[in-house]
Design a protein around this nucleic acid. Sequence first.
DNA 1: CCGTTCAGTTAGAGGCTATCACTAACGCTC
DNA 2: GAGCGTTAGTGATAGCCTCTAACTGAACGG
Lengths: 216, 216
Amino acid sequence: MIEADTRTPRERYRAQVREEIKQHAWTQLAAAGAYALSLNAIAKQMGMSGPALYRYFANRDELITELVKDAYRSLADTFRARAEAGADLGDLAHALRQWALADPQRYFLVYGTPVPGYQAPEDTTRITSEIMTVLLDACTAEQPPATAPSPLDPHLAERRAWAGQHPAPPSALRRALTFWTRLHGVLSLELAGHFTGMGFDPAQLYAAETEALAGR
Amino acid sequence: MIEADTRTPRERYRAQVREEIKQHAWTQLAAAGAYALSLNAIAKQMGMSGPALYRYFANRDELITELVKDAYRSLADTFRARAEAGADLGDLAHALRQWALADPQRYFLVYGTPVPGYQAPEDTTRITSEIMTVLLDACTAEQPPATAPSPLDPHLAERRAWAGQHPAPPSALRRALTFWTRLHGVLSLELAGHFTGMGFDPAQLYAAETEALAGR
DNA sequence: CCGTTCAGTTAGAGGCTATCACTAACGCTC
DNA sequence: GAGCGTTAGTGATAGCCTCTAACTGAACGG
C-alpha cells in the first residue's frame, strides 16, 4: 500500500538523517561496543562537524536509548513474525539465538551490563510485555505431557502482575520465565566468549536446554 | 603465622598504593559502573595528580583487568571456602547469589558485556577452571536419584577438554554447565533490573532453578 | 517574494587518557 | 653517615571526547 507522505520536506529529511546516524552508530557498536560509541566519530564519518549531531539527538545517552529501543523492537518483531507463522517454543528459541548471533552487541544492548542509575524508558517495558505475550502464548498452547509440579507455581499464581490479563496457567508462566532465563544464560555466556576454548559446542548446549524446556 | 616481609620498603609502599587505588576504583565502579571509572577522578580523590597513577597502572585497561582478576579470585575463594566446608550444590548456588548481590557491578565485571576485541588474560582462565573444578566436584559427589538421559551427554563425553583430568561422568559435566548457565541467566537478568516491576520474587525463581538442578 | 525556521558551522569550556621532562625525596651501598 | 642512583609525584601538553553558544546561510511556507 502506498500512502501519501504527509510529512513536510524538513521532517522527511530529518528522519532520514536520524536514520543514517543510527546506521553508523550500529556499525560502530558492532565493531567496538557501546563504550566506544562516539558522536564525534559518527559525524566525521558522515562528513559533518561534531556538534551537528546534537540537532538530531539531545546527547549520547539519547542516541543509545534510541538504539536500545530499536533493538527491543527488532526482537519483538522477529518473535511476533515467527509466532504468526505458527512457531512453537523450539522455533522461538532458535529465532532468539539467530537474532542474538546476528549482532552480539545488539543483544548486549538489551540484556547486557546496565548502568547503575539507568531506568528503562516506558516504551521498552511495553515492548518487553509484547515479547512476553508471544512467549506466554506459546507456553500456554504447548503444554508438556507430564509436568512435575514446581514449588514456584504457587508463587507465580499469586504474583502474576507481569502477565497482565494473559490466561496462561501458573505452569505456563513458569515455563515462560525459565525459557527466558535459561536461554539467556547460555546465550549471554556464549556471546561474551566464556565458552571459547572449552571445547564443546554451545549450539548443542542451547539445543539441549531448549529441549528440556519443551519437554518439561 | 608471621612472616618476615622480604620486600623492600619501596615495594611495600608500592603495593599499598596500588591497593588503595583499587579500593577507590571499586567504590567508583559500584557507584557508576565500569564505564564511568576514571583514573583522573581516583587520583583527585587520593589527593594526587592524574598522571601519578600511571606509575602504578600502565593504563585504564590494566587497572580494570586487575579488578576483573580480583573479582574472579574473590568468587573462586568463596566457592572453594564453601566447598571445603562441605557445601553441596544448593549451598554453592546460594553462595553465588550472595556474592553477586553483594556487588552487582563486580558480577558484571566478570560476566557482563564484553568489549568486542577483549581477550581474557591467562590468569583468569586458570581461576575459571578452579571454579569449575569445585563445581565438578560437587556435581560428581551428588548424583541425582533418577537422571533422565540427556542428548547432550554424548557430546560432552567427547568434548570434555574444559574438564581437564577431572573424573566427572558426562552427566556431571552437563549438570555443572547447566548450573552455571541457568543460575547466571537468572542472576544476570535480576541484577540488570529486568525483573523489577514484574511482581514476582527473583529469589524464588532462583531457588526453584537451584532445586531443579539438584533434583535432575 | 520575503520573513521565519532550522541545519550546520566554528569557537570554546571542561572532562578524559596518556606522554614527557623535570624535581625532590627516598633508600641502598659504601 | 654521606653520596648517588632509583623512583614517586609534578606540571605542561597533545589529542580525544561531550556538549554549549553564537553565528551563518539556505530552504521552506505563507
